[in-house]
Design a protein around this nucleic acid. Sequence first.
DNA 1: TATGAATGAGACTTCATTCAT
DNA 2: CATGAATGAAGTCTCATTCAT
Lengths: 193, 193, 193, 193
Amino acid sequence: MAKSIDESKIERIKEATIEMVVDKGYGGASVSAIAKKAGVADGYLYRHYPSKQALVQDLYISYIKDFKSNILEQSENNDDFEDVLFAIIMNIFRLANEAPSRAKFLNMLMNDYTFLMSEDFLRSIPESLEKLCEVGKAKGCVSEDITTEEFVAVFPAIPIELASLRVKGIFSSEPLSEKDAKRAAKLCIKALK
Amino acid sequence: MAKSIDESKIERIKEATIEMVVDKGYGGASVSAIAKKAGVADGYLYRHYPSKQALVQDLYISYIKDFKSNILEQSENNDDFEDVLFAIIMNIFRLANEAPSRAKFLNMLMNDYTFLMSEDFLRSIPESLEKLCEVGKAKGCVSEDITTEEFVAVFPAIPIELASLRVKGIFSSEPLSEKDAKRAAKLCIKALK
Amino acid sequence: MAKSIDESKIERIKEATIEMVVDKGYGGASVSAIAKKAGVADGYLYRHYPSKQALVQDLYISYIKDFKSNILEQSENNDDFEDVLFAIIMNIFRLANEAPSRAKFLNMLMNDYTFLMSEDFLRSIPESLEKLCEVGKAKGCVSEDITTEEFVAVFPAIPIELASLRVKGIFSSEPLSEKDAKRAAKLCIKALK
Amino acid sequence: MAKSIDESKIERIKEATIEMVVDKGYGGASVSAIAKKAGVADGYLYRHYPSKQALVQDLYISYIKDFKSNILEQSENNDDFEDVLFAIIMNIFRLANEAPSRAKFLNMLMNDYTFLMSEDFLRSIPESLEKLCEVGKAKGCVSEDITTEEFVAVFPAIPIELASLRVKGIFSSEPLSEKDAKRAAKLCIKALK
DNA sequence: TATGAATGAGACTTCATTCAT
DNA sequence: CATGAATGAAGTCTCATTCAT
């Protein structure tokens, strides 16, 4: 019981952190503002995270982990390769539709050279994509001469860019549909063939 | 009569700003540290820019403008469409090879929701890409049913991602070659067909 | 649960501010110096006032309010008019004797064209004096042809000037006595008759 | 010829200084802003004054000197005492009418405990008023039991306050007339009798 | 346990002053 | 002589973090 209250507080802190960081940037997201938005005391935050930096890093890493494990999971799926890509894309699009702040947060930190993770972890992301690339080649959907680097620049870069454009509202602000995901998957398949 | 403005100082400030922002993030790049790195007095910066924010914004916008004008220029090139893409990609790769900090800086701010430019300017970038997309369709290189959004997610997103991966040294740290650019152009062409 | 606000600290800040402003001027009274004199941290001040300017303004306004309400209070007093003036003068003299810094502070800001208060408030001070002037006329102690402006130039200008001269130690540094106040009241009465 | 250009520059600096100090306060009146307003280079100012402080002090002292010498001059005038006061008052009122900034400047610094002049000079002002007070007593216009302090609190305090109220526009913004000066002189005479 | 008062290092910025031209 | 580019000390203010309650 006491624990569940605790959990909800932590959840609120996480939510508040993401929104503040996306809205005001890392520097502009003050611990006080985050705590206020989460409805907890400034000091409370420090009972669960040693520093603001650690809080943001933790959130970032946990999202990256989710993403990575989703890719690994789907890689082991025996379906049609296009369906595998489609499933992963749907995950990305769902995030953009349902939790745009989280999507922005991820996008922002992934392109911020300040938020580097441990070397080990940094290597582990490409590895999951490398595996997916190999599956694609094995299934004859990815040309043998495509490098992993090129693969990554297509997938997941294309769907991420699509999600990012929607979240920013550059060309449209409509939610990303299943049809959009299908088209995205096809786009990637064409590029990689 | 009085001393003339030392342009090299301003250049050094720009250089220092980019490097500091890339290394430490916007918040971590203190004006003092930038000034020190540039070898000028702390206050000097404020004789040319009204604020730290304006300094970074100015640099950002000038780079975006360069990029945009390069795209517009190439769009009017009557060569083969693949060659047009190749030329733009070469520009991106050259930047990544020769001025990796500048490339990182651009990539970082383009994905930072805090650094928004004026509405007018924000709209002008997609417009240049829309024009390129139409040229591609006119030349029969881009399928009629590709939306501008999809076009952008392929080009320039793919070459930018490739440049970003190299600059981060994820799969390789070799300079991006002309051959890499040719392959990237082909990748885009395949996706858009 | 948490520490409670230390009111004495706020009091010390007020005291220190007044003394520093009087000694060094508004510009010369740095927040750091004020904080040091008050024995609090530099940043502490900003938990109670949004800016240095607001701190000084607040102090100024609260003193002016006290002064104004004292005049209004005495105006409703049914005593002899000279006694009314005497009571107000005693208040001014007491301030000069007991809290000379406060008296200097008030005098300084009242003659500083930078520290203007809200229009409403600015109007409200002459109003209280206008009322007093009318009371004086009703009681036959102030000649009917004296304008409010002239009234104000006599009262409270004369006692304020007397207090100011003492506080500066120009002619004497003795505390202002009850006898001094009596003479001052008489002086005003003679002028206004 | 060259000298006259020089003189006009210095005059412009003086004018600009007074206006800036009155408008923005001593701290808010930056040397750059003063120089710009005067149409001279920042550095030019330092060829004539060793510091900003000295510039302001110099102006202040020269105005005080003018005022003092006017009082001394009039004290030796053998006219009716009321006419003597009237002549001095007219001088104060003329200043308020024709050069309100200068009047404000003087008033501001006279009530600023930061701008203290040399001890010698500080003493010399009351002395001129003391002399005037004695003349008043000799002519039977000032009661023997009036102290110099009281005399000063009446004269020149009353006319200065009247001028100040007009300049601030509290009760009226009309120029101060000869009639106003006559009434002010009468007011002082009544108080001092 | 949770709070929020308090801290103080350090951020951004201003501006009096200097001096090469 | 006059200029204004350049300096850097010092000012105002913010905010991550601590700790008494």
